[in-house]
Design a protein around this nucleic acid. Structure first.
Lengths: 157, 157
DNA sequence: AGGCTAATTGCAACAATGTTGCGTTTAGCA
DNA sequence: TGCTAAACGCAACATTGTTGCAATTAGCCT
């Protein structure tokens, strides 16, 4: 019998990698786990468990919030996801942040947030950590202050 | 009539400064605000609103949690306190962090947390921000990874 | 392909944390 | 000392996170 060689849908290689890791460690590859992986993969910024839930719900997929919590816990233990401490949101590992580093600036007045990259700072940070016997995998840096606009409003020029 | 010159208790100058700022801006200096100030002053690390509540309760002082939320909001608006994003906890401004900079390392395995200071990184971070038109008042940096012990357990030497 | 079993999920119930509206209390001032 | 706007406490609710247990299912073994 002839089998179709085409897959029913295209699954990103990042998701595929994660699935392989799950299997390799003896975890089952379930529909909920696949769906959470895809939700993380599709997200452009850290997402909370409830974000994941509503994202999936919009696609007609319902997952209980307890399930999502447990799946995200598992992914973090397996290093497939990271919890971003500033927001409590989760990000897919290695997704959009090759250097494992997030650097944000938040205006304490208007709340505007900007993300930026600074390779040199990343390296220096890791080095500092190594000196203290710490193996860094992931950075998060948040600067709080005033954006140029709010600064001007407050202090004139 | 003769009045006693002694104050009933000694109030730290940091708390006094904050009280002056409250008054200067036209806010009332109430007992709850004083108590929250002292709780922040006494804390050695960031505290959540509920931390503040239980700390005070142990001293026989009861404040409604709503009140504490509102007071902490006010303090942040007046820059008397900062909200540490990683933990959601609050710290007294200028308290133990002269440089306005907190730098943490967290082990994703055992959870151990270490705080350290790196003046050079602080300066570089501010400079990066300035280049983007941002006036930094406060840094938070969190490195996630493995502490030396967990690293050894996992990867041998 | 069909059944077995442990792993996983869903559900219900609860705990913790945070928010809103409104009546009561109080700090600061005349 | 009394007045009044600001601040507080309370009740009720919203959101976020946790636990125990029964129902379901992925992966394996015929």
């Amino acid at each position: 019998m002839l089998r179709l060689a085409l897959r029913p849908c295209i699954i990103s290689s990042v998701v595929q990698d994660s699935i392989r890791i799950l299997q390799a460690q003896g975890y089952k590859v379930t529909k909920p786990r696949r769906q959470v992986l895809e939700a993380l993969e599709g997200a452009q910024k850290p997402v909370s468990p409830y974000d994941v839930q509503s994202t999936l719900r919009k696609q007609g997929k319902y997952l209980n919030h307890v399930t999502i919590y447990r799946i995200l816990d598992l992914f973090c233990r397996l290093n497939l996801a990271h919890k971003v401490l500033s927001s409590g949101g989760f990000v897919k590992c290695g997704l959009g942040n090759e250097a494992g580093c997030h650097r944000f600036m938040v205006c304490r007045c208007c709340g505007v947030l900007r993300e930026f990259v600074d390779e040199e700072l990343c390296k220096k940070e890791s080095k500092s950590a190594v000196n203290l016997g710490f193996h860094t995998e992931y950075h998060l840096s948040e600067s709080s202050g005033l954006c140029s606009e709010c600064y001007r409003k407050r202090f004139g020029e």
